[in-house]
Write a protein that binds this DNA or RNA. Structure first.
Length: 278
DNA sequence: CGTAGACCCTGCGCGC
DNA sequence: TGCGCGCAGGGTCTAC
């Protein structure tokens, strides 16, 4: 499921149905996620209503009238789905949240499904958000004013670290995952192994713009796929987006026809064009 | 300090 | 067909 465009798409799908809704009931069938799910803290939210549905990095934040927020991270394989009334439990449906609102009289069940269980569901006080361990060290969101080419330049000035690894470091910038890191580097024609200290201002500007372009385009696509996501049950996600390099090893570069390569950096696959990325 | 690698976990596609 | 292997969109901890 997750990189920033997908998480934001989920947020936009949740918002209209959750705003003003009241949490009626919680069921945790499998608490063993990245951290154990604390049933008690979820129970405390029952009876409160939703005041905002936000996103920070890849975390979804559901702010409630209880002064506490429900924080959800989808990890690698997490999904949130509105399930039809009393529809059969699927494998890995770990948590159910039942909500009520005035308009549809019937209760709505939101299920958290996560085969690999790398996700996270927890409750934190709303006032302590920015100082919480999950959020305190995060860099800017790619669409925030704080995310600038100068920021990228200054933060990484002395580093020999490969630029691709830097792009995926949430302390530098949040929300850019393995797919869009490769895509943004392809778009800005920068070789993924380039040491950050060797990158000068003009290329940082190109990379900065490429991050926004790539994420923005995916976001527009995500919104489009969500429409049929509601009725149909299939998760399309990334495959609706036209990716230029990711998972295209051995195929031709869409710009120069050279053969796309796959390498491993910090344990993750990187795809790039050896001819037009320098 | 910064960085690479292991690790958490399940499922899938591939070659044999 | 069954089995083992490598790989998968994330994040954190450890050892250098």
């Amino acid at each position: 499921m997750p990189e920033l465009p997908e998480v934001e798409t989920v947020r936009r799908g949740l918002e209209p149905r959750l705003l003003g809704a009241r949490l009626e009931r919680v069921e945790v069938r499998e608490p063993r996620l990245r951290e154990p799910v604390d049933r008690g803290s979820l129970e405390r939210l029952v009876g409160s209503s939703v005041e905002a549905v936000r996103r920070r990095a890849k975390y979804l934040i559901i702010e409630t009238s209880a002064g506490e927020s429900l924080v959800i991270h989808l990890g690698m394989s997490g999904r949130l789905v509105w399930s039809k009334q009393s529809s059969e439990l699927q494998p890995h449906d770990h948590i159910s949240l039942w909500w009520s609102s005035r308009h549809p009289a019937a209760h709505q069940e939101l299920r958290y499904n996560d085969p690999r269980r790398f996700g996270l569901v927890l409750v934190i006080p709303r006032s302590g958000m920015e100082t919480h361990r999950l959020f305190s060290r995060l860099g800017p969101d790619p669409f925030s004013a704080a995310f600038t080419a100068e920021h990228l330049h200054s933060v990484t000035r002395r580093s020999r670290r490969p630029v691709k690894n830097m792009l995926m470091d949430a302390r530098v910038v949040t929300g850019i995952g393995n797919i869009y890191a490769s895509e943004a580097l392809w778009l800005s024609r920068i070789h993924p192994a380039t040491a950050c200290r060797r990158i000068a201002a003009p290329r940082w500007r190109r990379l900065h713009d490429a991050c926004r372009d790539v994420l923005g385009a995916a976001l527009r696509q995500g919104g489009a796929t969500l429409n049929d996501f509601r009725d149909v049950e299939g998760s399309r996600g990334y495959f609706a987006v036209r990716l230029q390099v990711y998972d295209r090893a051995g195929e031709g570069c869409h710009r120069c026809k050279a053969t796309i390569r796959r390498v491993v950096q910090a344990g993750r696959s990187t795809y790039y064009c050896p001819r037009c990325q320098r």
